[in-house]
Nucleic acid binder design. Structure first.
Lengths: 199, 199
DNA sequence: CGATGGTTTAACTATAAGGTTAATGAAGAA
DNA sequence: TTCTTCATTAACCTTATAGTTAAACCATCG
């Protein structure tokens, strides 16, 4: 329970930043949640911007590394796609605010992610491309631009989280129903993609 | 050129809010862009919150009404889906910051859109459901949960805009290439969906 | 002309928020 | 015990920003 102060601050900051974004977050609230004085935030992290950067890099790295790993699995591409969809949706279900958090920062500072993306996804597209060509050669897949496929994957996975209030209102689901919807989505998205890619 | 003051303010506010979000926007900047004194903002719109609300409602209504209209077209469902994808992507290309803007507000105040959604999408899901059943009966479509289909549509259309810096970095496209990518995406998404839905 | 009323501005206020500082506490070293 | 050092705090400082106010402007109508 008694974590060291720096990680207590970090975790509090993560919670607040992820919920409120950079501009919306208040240093005082972070201090309160960490149960420490506001000056300590600056003692450990210098400034709001640096604290945010630390939190953001960690979160983005977590998402990207998991996603990239799933896409690089040593399986035939169709199976890899299923793995990706399942792990990615599960990951986000555990941190539902994460995509919106990353996306907002992406808008505020479009270059922020470049370093992280470049670090975690080198050759990712090539790997995807090779996977596609192999599967095409094996007659298991129709050819598709890997960039589009990547976009499809991400879009299909994160949309129910970032647009939740909208979708939930439009479909009139209660929270339990929406949870079931999210669970079902893993299979739904997998089969949707597979069917779209039959040769 | 000489618009009336209120709309000048409104347009300036739209530009600033859409670029920076509510927290990031500064009343002074809105006033500057509108070429008027800051006090006038309050004269016409009372407070930052009210000004934002006006802008947000208008933007959200624009997106939702166009989208809902496309989905209600009097065509067989497969054609309707193509129409939707094309008009929606074109709409966003003309206002590329719009989705992120709406999504951020969705996070800041999840209930904000409920009224607008409820107003513009009543029976939308039912209409989609009927369209699906008709097409299924005609042997043109495999059955799919309309809620999932709606999510698929939105996710596939908006992802290249909200995740643009990420995708552009991962794919190493320059701006021209990314524009071509967006243009190509209309066809790509349409055929992807159609293929996924063959019976 | 001159009064009236909506519009616009310059100057101001209040406050909240990020950041700083100097003093205090605690814990080990000499 | 006393000195040193790192951790922590209360109080303070500065600035930026939403919002207010009172006066000036300007058109219209009598």
């Amino acid at each position: 329970m008694e974590q060291d102060t720096e990680t207590r601050i970090f975790e509090a900051a993560r919670a607040v930043f992820v919920e409120q974004g950079f501009e919306g977050a208040r240093m005082q609230e972070i201090a309160d949640r960490a149960g420490i004085n506001k000056a300590l935030l600056h003692y450990y992290f210098r400034s709001k911007a640096r604290l945010f950067e630390a939190v953001f890099r960690a979160s983005a790295a977590e998402v990207l590394s998991q996603a990239a790993t799933a896409l690089r699995q040593d399986q035939p591409l169709p199976d890899r796609l299923t793995t990706f969809v399942h792990t990615y949706i599960d990951l986000i279900r555990a941190n539902p605010h994460l995509p919106a958090f990353v996306l907002e920062e992406l808008r505020r500072n479009p270059d922020a992610l470049k370093a992280v993306v470049a670090e975690h996804t080198p050759g990712l597209l090539d790997a995807l491309g090779r996977g596609i060509e192999d599967a095409v050669a094996a007659g298991r897949l129709r050819r598709i631009d890997p960039a589009h496929l990547l976009a499809h994957l991400i879009g299909l996975c994160i949309i129910p989280f970032i647009a939740r209030p909208m979708l939930q209102t439009a479909t009139q689901m209660d929270d339990a129903a929406y949870d079931a919807f999210l669970e079902a989505r893993k299979e739904e998205v997998s089969t949707f993609i597979h069917r779209a890619l039959v040769p």
